[in-house]
Amino acid sequence: MSNLKILVCAKRVVDANVRVRTKDDYSDVEIEHCKMSLNPFDENAIEEAVKLKEKSLVNEIVAVSIGSEKCVDILRVALARGADRAIHVNSIDRLDSITIAKILKKIVQKEQPDIILMGKQAIDDDANQVGQMLAGMLDYPQGTFISKLEIGTNNDVNVTREIENGTETINIQLPAVLTADLHLNEPRFIKLPQLMLAKKKPIESINLDEINITVKDTGRVIKVIDGKITKQCKMLTNIDEIIDVLKQKKVI
């Protein structure tokens, strides 16, 4: 039996079902009144940690979220999903990826988890950076975009990663950073008693200025535009017309 400790990351993001709009002056997106949720990939990360705990391979799951006070709501969700306790790093929302990674590094140094399990990407900026950055800073091995995780017997894990045209399997010594693909698992529905239980679990709050890092702006959003392109769809009435299109496009 292993007694692993897992740190799971929980980012608060605009819900996947919301269609985000730009502000009138295009300076940024308007998310003030949007429904916010736990990043879907982080749901997979937490689900995996919980499954390992149910198999007695893990004995503690700590969730961490960085951002405004409202991240506490997201941490409650993580606790309801099965994390044992949570850490909220209180800061402005939307720090640069490199700053998030630096903060996580400090949390890792304090908590000493065996596995840092996070999403492969956050669905707001679709950056896909923080896990690899953190691993690089810590000089930990990384298993990115994983769709399968197996705990080994020698303080190691085997992970299957999603790559072009298939998968690859690698063996990693712990401690390590792992990032979840959506295919890792199917997050379960939260039941009411779990939500009640989550209210009793502890959330530690740390202010960003208590963490000794330099925050740097590596860039800025200049403007945003609606990314939606709407086409004039020409409705066809039969298969021959599809054939005509294919001929016209020199496909056949």
Binding site: V14, A16, R19, V20, T22, V29, I123, D124, D125, D126, G219, R220, V221, I222, K223, V224, I225, D226, G227, K228
Partner: peptide
């Protein structure tokens, strides 16, 4: 960004 809903200039 945002699943392709937004095109950001950075």
């Amino acid at each position: 960004t945002y699943a392709g809903n937004i095109l950001s200039e950075i």
